[in-house]
């Protein structure tokens, strides 16, 4: 059996230093994600979903428990190892794109590679490839201020994928987009997931975005309280309805 892309065991996160008021954001989280899955994490604000994403993407360290990404124990990585791990294994899309305004789209996409001192030839090749997949080959010479929100997010997405990461994380990737661009981006993510078998895990509070996933984890008060699997035969519309139903009972 393959190693799971994500394996979380007994994860706990407590915020607040000694002497300060403690806040337990995650109480006990266990889950696994196989390669090629498209997983959504849902929950109300304050439920701990962003905290969980930060732990998974190595941006924050757990108080206790284990997080393994592609077989590596994340909390044991330090310094340059951690930098290399981020640059090779992880792609991340932010809600607010986080493109560097002074760089062109191509240079933005190339950032993870340039920071790792990959050769210029190799960079050009990879950027062209990933731009092709995301349909932004025409935009490569543009600066971020010349792009629409949807285009920016596609550039950001290309940057997250250029180094062929083991997993793509998204933090409300459609949060800053209008509904048309959001739908386009989500279709694109689905396509990438299906065609290239890229594992995707995104946090969202929007049931429409979540309906593009294969599996949804609902987080409440620091626990995974429920899981919803999409049936292969199910259409997205039916799955969307199911999510809405769960959210309806969830709030009570």
């Amino acid at each position: 059996m393959n190693t799971p892309v994500v394996k979380v065991v007994n994860l706990k996160k407590v915020y607040g230093k000694k002497n300060e008021k403690m806040y337990m954001a995650l109480k006990k989280i266990d889950f696994e994600m196989q390669q090629g899955e498209f997983v959504g994490i849902m929950g109300a604000s304050g439920s701990g979903k962003t905290t969980l994403l930060n732990m998974l993407s190595t941006f924050d360290s757990p108080t206790s428990g284990s997080v393994k990404i592609a077989g590596d124990e994340v909390s044991s990585l330090k310094g340059d190892q951690l930098a290399d791990f981020r640059a090779q294994k992880i792609g991340f899309i932010f809600q607010d794109f986080n493109l560097i305004e002074s760089l062109t789209a191509a240079e933005n996409i190339a950032l993870p590679l340039s920071l790792q001192s990959v050769t210029a030839n190799e960079i050009d090749k990879k950027v062209a490839e990933v731009a092709q997949i995301l349909g932004i080959s025409e935009l490569l010479k543009n600066y971020p201020y010349e792009l629409s929100g949807g285009q920016k997010q596609r550039v950001a997405c290309a940057r997250a994928l250029v180094h062929d990461p083991a997993i793509l994380f998204g933090d409300e990737p459609t949060g800053a987009l209008d509904s048309k661009s959001a739908r386009e981006l989500l279709s694109l993510l689905t396509e990438i997931n299906e065609k290239h078998r890229t594992s995707i895990l995104m946090v969202t509070h929007d049931p429409f975005s979540a309906s593009f996933c294969n599996r949804i984890l609902f987080i409440k008060d620091g626990y995974i309280s429920r899981q919803l699997l999409k049936d292969k035969k199910q259409t997205r519309g039916v799955f969307y309805q199911e999510i809405l139903d769960i959210l309806g009972t969830f709030e009570q």
Binding site: D84, A87, I100
Partner: peptide
């Protein structure tokens, strides 16, 4: 902000 982003994209401390 930019430096934070570089770190998240895998820039080493030396860089």
């Amino acid at each position: 902000h930019d430096y934070g982003l570089f770190m998240m994209l895998g820039a080493k401390k030396k860089k």
